[in-house]
Lab assay of single mutants.
Amino acid sequence: NRRVIAMPSVRKYAREKGVDIRLVQGTGKNGRVLKEDIDAFLAGGAKP
Rank of each mutant, 00 (worst) to 15 (best):
N1D: 09
N1A: 00
N1G: 02
N1K: 06
R2C: 08
R3M: 09
R3W: 05
R3G: 07
V4F: 14
V4G: 05
V4R: 05
V4S: 11
V4C: 03
I5P: 07
I5A: 06
I5G: 10
I5N: 05
I5K: 05
A6V: 09
A6G: 11
A6F: 07
A6E: 15
A6N: 14
A6L: 08
A6T: 13
M7I: 01
M7S: 06
M7L: 09
P8I: 10
P8G: 14
S9H: 09
S9A: 14
S9C: 10
V10S: 03
V10C: 09
R11P: 05
R11F: 13
K12W: 06
K12I: 15
K12V: 10
Y13G: 02
Y13N: 02
Y13K: 04
Y13R: 02
A14F: 00
A14S: 06
A14T: 00
E16H: 01
E16Q: 05
E16I: 03
K17R: 12
K17S: 10
K17W: 09
K17I: 09
K17A: 09
K17C: 08
G18N: 06
G18W: 07
G18F: 02
V19F: 12
V19L: 09
D20G: 04
D20M: 03
D20Q: 11
D20K: 05
D20A: 05
D20E: 11
D20W: 03
D20T: 13
I21A: 07
I21M: 14
I21H: 10
I21W: 11
I21Q: 01
R22F: 02
L23M: 04
L23S: 09
L23E: 14
V24G: 00
V24H: 06
V24S: 03
Q25D: 15
Q25R: 06
Q25M: 10
G26P: 15
G26E: 02
G26H: 05
T27R: 07
T27P: 00
T27C: 05
G28W: 01
G28H: 04
G28M: 02
G28T: 03
K29E: 12
K29F: 14
K29L: 03
K29D: 09
K29R: 02
N30D: 13
G31F: 09
R32A: 08
R32Q: 08
R32V: 06
R32F: 03
R32E: 13
R32M: 10
R32K: 14
V33E: 01
V33T: 09
L34T: 03
K35V: 05
K35T: 04
E36H: 01
E36A: 11
E36D: 15
E36G: 12
D37Y: 00
D37N: 05
D37C: 01
D37I: 00
D37G: 00
I38R: 00
I38F: 00
I38H: 00
D39N: 01
D39F: 01
F41S: 10
F41V: 11
F41M: 13
F41C: 11
L42W: 10
L42H: 13
L42M: 14
L42I: 10
A43H: 12
A43W: 05
A43L: 12
A43D: 11
A43Y: 07
G45K: 12
G45Q: 12
G45A: 14
A46R: 09
A46Q: 09
K47E: 11
K47A: 07
P48R: 01
